[in-house]
């Protein structure tokens, strides 16, 4: 994925299996959110594909959601002036199909669908512990509850793969623990989770596998132990030069940027929620 001369994500190849929690970490600006945006079709990747359960997804957000990938946002994007319940019901959009006509005619089918939607949404609100706030405006919820509401809204689309972008950012330790439990509970429902996080304790507690993204490239991928032990990861986080002195690193960066600008593509990655691994960015 390139923005003008900047290659934000290149050749990241990542596979998530069902029932698995995978962590994605990396310093700020590493391209983690951009990677999510490519997966969900909000950005059309310059190169590469996303496949889910063996089929390649078109880069259209609503089709991606329909296929079964749902997400939350790093900077919460709720429908601020809708109620908590309405927010979750919007999440069910792809799983219902009443159109304008049935809304206007209000036949028995419409009522039944509305009622079922409401019941299902209330179940989800109970699941994340917000049932008592159903009629509050989303904008009036405290921060931590907004994050949980966003998760409930994403779950409402009945996904097979859930993408969480920094779900504990700005939370206190207790809220973080609640979120941790929530993520486990989601996994137990058989939903694969891919989570971006800066809180290392959270990540290493939670994840079966962790991938580290640095400057748009995947540095390492593996179990917590493997990643924790990797020197390069530590270096990346502490901001130390990979090798040599800072001047050299800078020069290398400039060179790399030029090379990127010259090269035609870069690419993205794939997520495969079920079964096998797969896919490809593109070889270079």
């Amino acid at each position: 994925m390139r923005f003008g001369g900047l290659t934000a994500v290149r050749e990241v190849d990542l596979t998530v299996r069902s029932g698995e929690i995978v962590g994605l970490i990396g310093p700020n600006g590493a391209g983690k959110t951009t990677f999510f945006n490519c997966l969900t079709g909000l950005y059309v990747p310059t190169q590469g594909t996303v496949s889910y359960r063996g089929t390649v997804l078109p880069p259209k957000p609503h089709l991606v959601t329909k296929a079964g990938i749902a997400r939350t946002f790093q900077n919460i994007r709720l429908f601020a002036n809708m109620t908590v319940l309405e927010n979750v019901m919007v999440g069910r959009h792809t799983r219902t199909k009443e159109g304008l006509w049935s809304a206007l005619l209000r036949g028995p089918g419409f009522r039944k669908a509305e009622q079922a939607g409401e019941e299902r949404s209330m179940e989800l609100l109970e699941f994340v512990g917000l049932a008592h706030k159903r009629d509050h405006l989303a904008r009036n919820l405290p921060y931590g509850e907004q994050r949980r509401l966003e998760i409930a809204r994403a779950l409402a689309s009945e996904p097979g793969l859930l993408l969480l972008d920094e779900p504990t950012a700005g939370m206190n330790p207790q809220e973080t623990r609640t979120t941790e439990e929530l993520v486990f509970a989601i996994r137990d429902k058989g939903i694969a989770v891919l989570v971006i996080e800066h809180d290392m304790r959270f990540i290493f507690n939670l994840c079966d596998r962790v991938a580290v993204l640095v400057q748009g490239r995947k540095l390492v991928e593996g179990t917590s132990d493997v990643v924790q032990a990797d020197e390069r990861v530590v270096a990346a986080y502490l901001g130390e030069p990979f090798e040599g002195d800072p001047g050299e690193a800078e020069a290398a960066e400039v060179e790399a940027a030029e090379a990127q600008a010259a090269e035609a593509g870069s690419d993205t990655e794939t997520a495969d929620a079920e079964s096998t691994s797969t896919t490809k960015g593109e070889p270079q």
Partner: peptide, 18 residues
């Protein structure tokens, strides 16, 4: 609800499958 969601935040709305 889909209309209002789009009014509120179009990006989030399409990401919710609208």
């Amino acid at each position: 609800r889909a209309w209002i969601a789009i009014r509120e935040d179009e990006t989030a709305a399409v990401a919710m499958g609208i």
